[in-house]
Design a protein around this nucleic acid. Structure first.
Lengths: 340, 340
DNA sequence: GCTGGCACTCGCACGGACCGAGTGCCAGCC
DNA sequence: GGCTGGCACTCGGTCCGTGCGAGTGCCAGC
């Protein structure tokens, strides 16, 4: 029906206007700013229906309409085309990310870039350890019974752990241990490392067995524990600008952002094969994120997902633009990490 | 003069009351809540003098008085004793920091702890590279002409850099290079490393000379550049609670906090031999920090300062309590790092 | 030099009036 | 049947005037 069609146009127009002006939008303004081909009165009828269906609502009687979470959802799913980035934006991405010296630097630049492109809070996850492979393991002796284990992954991530050993360690043993560990784990996915430990311990020379067991245990704990996934967060200053969109205070949101676990959950659930994931308002389980939307996507090299990145902002955000920015940045980061 | 003495008591009382109530404090309330032994009328006279001297001011005619930056300064310098931490607080510090698995973890816990103890934004600097010593250098070959250089310092900091080499590298050369670098730099302060490079390059076997030069150059750049000093920031959610203390918006402050350089400058100027440094309002050069105070101190092992840590909050803060917390945490972190 | 009393100032909270945006409904038109 | 213009109605925001109370400065007296 052309009838339904127009109603959706009206919804789209409402979302667009509301996002750009931050004022509840009325039938008259809508008719003026968009070529809907009908009068305000007709639009009013459509709006009444949209409201009944739960797509829009009015904050109070004599105000215009505002999209609901459900309205944004329909907009994102059916009414918006992903906005292609401008040439300037593409160039900005390249200029920003090139010249990074290490993984830390890449992710730091990424988060600043995303925050700048979208004017929202940006979040980038370090490449998941369990999906990375071991490039090298280094063992450094700290004291007689204490070792520092350094793990270098193929994604450039470097992790360190102090290992307290049950016995004193001779210097020659350290070199032997290092060789043993590397031949066992080098090239292996960290997710598979746990399975290799018993075998490794069994075949190790007797005098090293306790040592190997202790070090392997630390290694496996380091990567199995999902809490070990790290995050970089940036652009929180943008929250201050959008403060009006968050009813009470920014506090719960800032607290949630500091609780890395919460954000990690949001960002890491992106294994949906490269599609940008949008969660709107109430769709976010965590209550501090009611009123906030999350746009996220996985990044990776080739077919392998390494981690997630995305943005957090008010539900009243430019979804097409932000989805495009998130996707473009994820692609570029994926490429960059594939090179190294 | 007993006269002057009492005036200072009045100032102290004003600061204490204002900090705890956030209301401009009047002569009557002051007489009620403090045993000054004189009537409100007398206090009014003292207040008039204090105002003339610039220690307090009144927001508007019919309101009470509020300390100025100068007033806080006098309070911090002469009117406050550092408040000893409660047993519970001391125990909280230990419980919080013990069980950290690596440097990253120690500093992450430190920043959360500081934020929680002071209810302010907490900042912790990674141990300065230039003042750390090399514990170990690891070289991992990435591609034919690309190496990953991993630096492990005696403070537990691990840094990595990709080194692009002018020529292809044989696998044996990598081992030789590693040995060469370690014998040259191990145990040396990074600040002194620059001086060792020419000698090292000269004495290196000819076929490694280009390689050694390239790698050493990267190493020295990594540490000389002061931008390489890293920060951990936490407790920004506390800003939302103190939002009323910042006139316009939180934005400039949040922006300044994201500009790591700005904060770094504040936190790292603490070489004053263990004394807690307080900067109040206008005393902070950066204009976004007008209206904010910074309490910072260096932490270190023994006589060696490793880095700085501190808090950022509104000028209306509990200086004695925060100074005590900052100092106690710095001491504990120093001890912890000395152990490892 | 301290104190109680007193007149004065001013910010703020309260409340009523006004205004305008926006709506729903209805009769008429295509 | 669906669209349109007109109209009465609602209601939040703003403006303004008033009253109140906290706090002050000053002064005379002890």
């Amino acid at each position: 029906m052309a009838h339904d069609e127009r109603r959706l146009q009206v919804l789209r127009a409402i979302v667009q206007d509301y996002v750009s002006t931050n004022d509840p939008v009325g039938s008259k303004a809508l008719a003026e700013r968009h070529d809907l081909g009908v009068s305000p009165a007709t639009i009013r009828n459509d709006m009444a229906v949209l409201e009944e269906q739960g797509y829009i609502t009015q904050p109070h009687t004599s105000a215009g309409r505002v999209p609901t979470d459900k309205g944004y959802r329909l907009f994102v799913d059916r009414l918006s085309a992903v906005k292609p980035l401008s040439v300037a934006e593409r160039r900005a991405i390249e200029r920003f990310l090139d010249g990074a010296v290490d993984l830390h630097d890449v992710l730091g630049r990424t988060v600043r870039l995303l925050a700048q492109l979208t004017h929202q809070v940006a979040v980038v996850q370090y490449p998941t350890l369990s999906r990375s492979a071991v490039r090298h393991l280094e063992v450094v002796q700290l004291t007689a019974s204490r070792l520092l284990l350094v793990l270098i992954t193929d994604t450039g991530r470097v992790e360190q752990r102090v290992v307290e050993c049950p016995v004193d360690i001779a210097q020659d043993d350290v070199a032997e241990l290092r060789a043993l560990l590397n031949s066992a784990f080098a090239g292996a996915r960290l997710g598979d490392a746990g399975g290799k430990v018993p075998d490794l311990v069994d075949t190790a020379p007797p005098h090293l067995r306790a040592l190997v067991a202790a070090v392997s245990a630390t290694l496996v704990e380091t990567l199995v524990e999902p809490g070990e996934d790290r995050l970089v967060i940036g652009g929180t200053a943008n929250l201050a600008r959008t403060a009006l969109d968050f009813p009470g205070s920014l506090r719960p949101l800032l607290e949630a952002l500091e609780e890395q676990v919460v954000v990690l959950k949001l960002i890491s659930e992106v294994d949906t094969g490269g599609a940008v994931l949008v969660r709107i308002g109430e769709e976010n389980a965590h209550e501090a994120l009611t009123g906030a939307s999350v746009v996220s996507v996985g990044y990776g090299t080739g077919d392998r997902a390494l981690g997630g990145l995305g943005i957090v902002g008010p539900t009243r955000m430019d979804y097409p633009g932000n989805m495009a920015a998130v996707r473009a940045v994820a692609r570029y980061v994926g490429q960059l990490l594939a090179e190294s």
